[in-house]
Amino acid sequence: MKKDVVTDIHYDIGRGEIVRISRLSLLNKFIPLGHLGGGPGLRCLLVLFVVHRFGNPLFRILMLQEERLTRLYVWLRRRGGKESPAGSGSC
């Protein structure tokens, strides 16, 4: 019996739940699967796929460039740009 994990380095359930959700969500487009609360939504799935799969190298780079990015955010904010819509609850 091959060993399994409860969560992996991508912080997903087991090994790659996000892919499984995507597959079932695609199937739901063709046949009725039942009450899935409106489904996961394509944009949410894409963002979560990227965050899970590429989060590790992505955040490594972001952390290394933290100071430059902070300066960039401050500059953007001073130019009158809007803040990121955190907590907006939609995707």
Partner: peptide, 18 residues
């Protein structure tokens, strides 16, 4: 990375019951 993941799930769950 871990916090970015949970943050997105919590944010999305407000608009998407799934």
């Amino acid at each position: 990375h871990r916090k970015a993941v949970i943050k997105r799930y919590v944010q999305y769950s407000a608009g998407k019951p799934f």
